[in-house]
Design a protein around this nucleic acid. Structure first.
Length: 592
RNA sequence: GCCCCCGUAGCUCAACGGAUAGAGCAUCGGACUUCUAAUCCGACGGCUGCAGGUUCGAAUCCUGUCGGGGGCGCCA
């Protein structure tokens, strides 16, 4: 927010160093002064002092930290107090520049209240990226393990948009394969003519799949029937294809219900069924080019990556692109899908795959193969890996094993618990509002616990932890938003005209303004690293600072001018909180 | 055998190579006739798994090691 001033001051400092014959770096790094209640920016001279020492130009007998402090003092002296700053000090090798509260507080608030819903957003980059996420299988359950993918993917999309990218949200649905055939086999033989209940489509589909697996486990001889059905499917038997289309639709409708509730939509939905044939053709082309080795009939079609690359050490290894019987695998379809994406969107600066970490090697194999095939965009493919969600005791969620927490059950429990708290805390709200609040709080709690964590860390699912409404959690942030809204409502909803503070700012005000000002940087970092965690942390820091301010600084019952200034601060905080929550796909209620 | 991830307070997690490693939960003690107490304040709690190395400076980077998890040809 103060890049312009800092750029000028940096230039000035580098000039000062040069005049003193001190070898200067190309630039200086500025970070916020890390002490609460202060407001400013800092840089240090350890690097400069160390460089000087290496060059043999440092005064004898002076250690680096000491010398850094000397340089900081010298710079502070030569710099004076620049326009717009309150004071300059040299402390332990650091040069601390304290902002002039009147000037800078006004600038932060004016920026926030001019940008409003866009506060924290970065200028457009004129680049388009695609993010593929969710990737559910039809005819199967949707559990909490799948939830992390959807929430992470959606949040990353929102963050990238805020960082100035044009984002294409892509889904890739597994609508064919052995699991579908098993499901159809079970349906035809044991559930023919049945239809799923309207509100429980996914659960019903998942239950029938689990039942199919169980039947086949108990009676392996029935596998023959499944194989026969697979053959009919493969021959495009119209009766089977029609049933497939009808039942697949039930899953898709179930997914839509989930996505709507999660606040997720997709711009382009790919299906495995649409890339299977192109994939088989592509494999033939790969064989012809010598990239794939056809080991049929004794083996499958394999890509020997290490051999192709001449690597002695095991790196990319080998993988199978087509079964020996000619049927397709994941790889058969992922290769043509990557190509299709760039045919449809040739200008993608990046094609991102949100897929769990267990598929890291596989993703690298796909990317490397596309590079070998000569696609110039192969280096724009990126695997955004995240860790899985386990059950306590390191139990992997598996629809086969029945060790799952269904998404529907989690959402129901979350909103029920939130509803109970609303009834207790705010019984006077009308019924519809209570329901909305319960939805926002319950779903928000789930999303926050999943996003406020390093992507590479395993989440161990625990009901009480996932649905904890206290402490570092979505409701804490939502509550700060509600408090801000409450003050603004009491004030009549009007935000006062821009003004500079005439009172000495309270440390809680300084801290809050300082946290607000850090939102754009959090967005930049989160987008660069694909980490919603940074937004989650910043949202909490702002909420914390706001609550502190709320407790210590009266807004309405005080001097008129202070009221005006603080109302602007409250309004800016409300936008910042709402915007940060929106980047996490969490609703910010007006009351709760 | 090769490769990847994780290891920080009793528990769950933060911390851009930088100032005194911070939150929440739990435990104990306080604050509501006040803009909503889903809040706030205080206390307690640490050899950042271990050992080396790089650096002015390491929880962070490198090497090794221990512990846990995961991946490695016809699963997805």
């Amino acid at each position: 927010m103060f890049e312009h001033e800092l750029h000028q001051i940096t230039t000035q400092i580098l000039k000062i160093l040069a005049e003193q014959g001190i070898p200067a770096p190309e630039t200086l790094d500025w970070t916020p002064i890390p002490f609460s209640g202060t407001w400013g920016t800092a840089t240090n001279f350890f690097r400069v002092a160390a460089q000087e020492a290496r060059a043999g130009k440092a005064p004898k007998g002076v250690k680096v930290p000491q010398r850094a402090q000397q340089i900081a003092e010298m710079v502070a002296e030569a710099l004076g107090t620049p326009e717009g700053f309150q004071k300059v000090e040299a402390v332990r090798g650091y040069l601390n520049l304290y902002f002039d509260p009147a000037i800078y507080s006004r600038r932060v608030l004016d920026t926030a209240l001019t940008e409003r819903e866009r506060f924290g957003h970065l200028p457009s980059r004129g680049q388009r990226v695609m993010v593929e996420y969710s990737q559910p299988n039809t005819h199967k359950a949707f559990h909490v393990g799948h939830l992390r993918n959807v929430i992470l993917g959606e949040s990353v999309c929102r963050i990238l948009e805020a960082a100035g990218y044009d984002v294409v949200r892509a889904n890739y649905i597994g609508d064919i394969g052995l699991h579908v055939i098993k499901w159809l086999w079970n349906y035809i033989n044991y559930h023919n003519g049945e239809e799923p209940p309207a509100e429980e489509k996914i659960r019903w589909m998942g239950d029938l799949y689990a039942e199919a697996v169980k039947r086949l486990d108990e009676n392996p001889e029935l596998e023959a029937e499944v194989r026969a059905l697979f053959a009919r499917w493969d021959a495009r038997d119209p009766e089977i294809v029609a049933l497939w289309e009808k039942t697949r639709q039930w899953s898709l409708e179930g997914f839509d219900q989930v996505y709507e509730r999660l606040g997720v939509h997709f711009d382009r939905v790919y299906f495995e069924s649409e890339v299977e044939e192109p994939g088989k053709e592509l494999v033939e082309e790969m064989i012809a080019k010598g990239i794939a080795t056809d080991e049929r009939p004794d083996g499958p079609v394999v890509v020997h990556l290490d051999e192709l690359l001449g690597l002695k050490k095991e790196t990319y290894r080998s993988y199978v692109v087509l079964r020996s019987d000619g049927t397709s695998l994941y790889a058969t379809k992922d290769l043509p899908l990557a190509i299709l994406k760039f045919q449809e969107y040739p200008d993608l600066a990046r094609s991102i795959y949100v897929i769990d970490v267990r598929q890291s090697l596989y993703m690298q194999q796909i990317f490397k193969t596309l590079e070998l095939m000569g696609y110039p965009w192969a280096d724009r493919l990126y695997h955004l890996a995240y860790e899985v969600v386990n059950l306590p005791g390191n139990v992997t969620m598996s629809s086969r094993e029945g060790t799952v927490v269904l998404l529907e059950d989690l959402m129901r429990e979350a909103t029920a618990r939130a509803r109970a708290v609303v009834e207790e805390k705010n019984p006077s709200l009308d019924d519809e509002t209570k329901a909305r609040v319960a939805e926002a709080v319950g779903m928000g709690a789930i999303k926050y616990t999943m996003l406020a964590r390093e992507n590479t860390k395993i989440v161990t699912f625990d009901w009480d932890r996932a649905l904890d409404f206290n402490g570092v959690a979505a409701p804490y942030i939502q509550y700060a938003h509600v408090r801000a809204n409450s003050i603004l409502r009491k004030a009549g909803g009007q935000i006062p005209e821009p003004l500079a503070p005439t009172h000495e700012l309270h440390p809680a005000e300084v801290e809050l303004i300082s946290q607000l000002a850090q939102l754009p940087e959090a967005v930049r970092r989160a987008a660069e690293e694909f980490k919603p965690l940074h937004i989650a942390n910043q949202a909490y820091d702002i909420a914390k600072a706001f609550n502190d301010f709320y407790n210590q600084c009266p807004v309405l019952n005080t001097d008129e001018h202070i009221t005006a200034f603080r109302l602007r601060l409250v309004a800016a905080s409300k936008y910042a909180l709402a915007n940060a929550l929106r980047l996490l796909a969490i609703d910010a209620p007006e009351r709760m």
